[in-house]
Design a protein around this nucleic acid. Structure first.
Length: 426
RNA sequence: GGAGAGGUGGCUGAGUGGUCGAAAGCACCGCACUCGAAAUGCGGCGUGCCUUAACGGGCACCGUGGGUUCGAAUCCCACCCUCUCCGCCA
């Protein structure tokens, strides 16, 4: 959500950014609503002021039993009714229209975000590791099914497409990955472990920006709640409607949760395998910071996500997303892409975004320094550290051998009870 | 799910139709007293918005949203949340 005052101060900047996303003219539209709104507010408030004044006099007149004067004053209030109602209606309707308009407009890219239309304009920032030399690599579906530890058919029978059943050592590997990532982020990087709700209200999902525009991407429950598409929703909403003391910032939060996505707009994409599922686990990182800290925190967060891939010795590259490829709430985003041998390319495994004050304003999350009178909207950042399902895919494929066995990265050995390979019959 | 109680400022808590944005206490800030501190005294101390060059002026907010009324923290309706008891339950 944007500050209407900021749009007032710098309409061209907003117009430029939004027209690039196909929403030309909305800045002017917002300003026009704003002008109407403030005129109505002023007119309404003047009438209310007058009414309050007269009502006070009515009370006094009644107090001294002057019924004639009271009736005269009440008649005068009656004449204000028209203005009160009409201006009140204008204020309500215009305010709602303005809020609805602003709520549907995406964040502005930071100045150092490269302009561009889609993923082809993203910039590679750095690369780590070399793709392993694997002759005719199998994909994770082949490998998993041959091992007898990955069953898409059983999942489809009970749940439909985009689900999977993992068994035995693969199920254990998934669990190991979640534990390992969580331990790394809490022990090495100082994040506070949180176990949050997975079902949330409208306001929470509005706060992070999935509502109102992206409702069809989410699962909705019969009692009106939403399954979180990412723990970003639960973690960021921890500061909703709160004034967090500035001394306590930055807040660094992490959670291992399941995530649920309807993938409504992805029909036909990644239908094979575990890359795109309705349900997957993810370790999420969220930072709540002051406005001046957020850029630095963003770089730090990317490092925390990269550390997982380095520890697992998986080749990856770090991409700076261009303006056209960023999500709704982000002002700057880095994606980590891990090497997927069967596809012969890098694929997204983490996305780290600085949202600036965009989400903070939507959820009224503020901070105040001791001794200061003014509050400021906090900055929020989120990143995956990492997506567990896709990391599992990357390990299976990158660590396969010619016999279809999977070597387990050293960092995970303690989490696998010392097991170093997954072989058929395990 | 059933029955009941309740949601007021950072906290405790008074207020059941008019001068209440709201008593009082605590906490906090400033000043005085003091060598200093404590105690005491005096003063200050919510948020958002509109308006103004500024000083200032105004509006709204007593869980949320509606309604009644000239006027609502106070009356009515709906919803949300908390607590107690009963039931059910991992």
């Amino acid at each position: 959500m944007h500050d209407i005052k900021a749009i007032r101060d710098n309409p061209d900047l907003y117009e430029q950014a939004w027209s690039a996303k196909g929403r030309s003219g909305v800045a002017a539209q917002a300003l026009e609503l704003d002008t109407t709104l403030r005129a109505a507010q002023t007119a309404l408030q003047e009438a209310q002021s007058r009414r309050n004044d007269l009502s006070k006099q009515i009370g006094q007149a009644k107090g001294r039993k002057d019924e004639a004067e009271a009736s005269r004053l009440m008649a005068e209030v009656e004449t204000l009714k028209g203005v009160l109602e009409s201006q009140g209606a204008v204020e309500r309707d215009t305010g709602e229209a303005l809020r609805d308009l602003l709520a549907g407009l995406p964040n502005l890219p930071a100045p150092d975000v490269p302009p561009g239309a889609d993923e082809n304009d993203n910039q590679e920032v750095r690369r780590w590791g070399e793709p392993f030399a694997i002759t005719s690599p199998k994909d994770h579906v082949d490998l998993g099914e041959t091992l007898g530890l990955m069953d898409f058919e059983a999942a489809a029978r009970m749940s439909g497409s985009r689900f999977v059943v993992l068994k035995g050592q693969l199920a254990r590997l998934e669990r190991a990955l979640g534990q390992f990532m969580l331990d790394l982020q809490t022990r090495e990087h100082g994040y506070l472990e949180v176990s949050p709700p997975l079902l949330v209200r409208d306001e929470a999902v509005f706060g992070t920006g999935q509502l109102p525009k992206f409702a069809e991407d989410l699962f909705h429950t019969e009692d009106g709640r939403w399954l979180i598409p990412t723990a970003e929703v639960s973690l960021t909403n921890l500061v909703r409607d709160q004034i967090t003391p500035t001394e306590e910032l930055p807040l660094r939060l992490t959670a291992l949760t399941h995530c649920f996505r309807s993938e409504a707009g992805a029909s036909g994409r990644d239908t094979r395998g575990m890359i795109r599922q309705h349900q997957f686990q993810k370790v999420e990182l969220v930072s709540i910071t002051t406005p001046d800290q957020s850029d630095k925190e963003h770089e730090r967060m990317v490092g925390c996500a990269e550390a997982v891939l380095k520890a697992l010795e998986l080749p990856f590259r770090t991409m700076l997303l261009c303006s056209g490829d960023m999500g709704f709430s982000a002002r700057k985003t880095y994606d980590l892409e891990v090497w997927i041998p069967s596809e012969g390319r890098y694929r997204e495994i983490s996305s780290c975004s600085n949202c600036g004050d965009f989400q903070g304003r939507r959820m009224n999350a503020r901070t105040k320094a001791a001794g200061e009178k003014a509050t400021r909207i906090v900055h929020t950042l989120n990143g995956s550290g990492l997506a567990v399902g896709r990391t599992l895919v990357a390990i299976i494929e990158n660590y396969q051998d010619e016999n279809g066995a999977i070597a387990i990265p050293q960092a995970l050995h303690p989490y696998m009870g010392g097991l170093t390979r997954i072989e058929a019959g395990a």
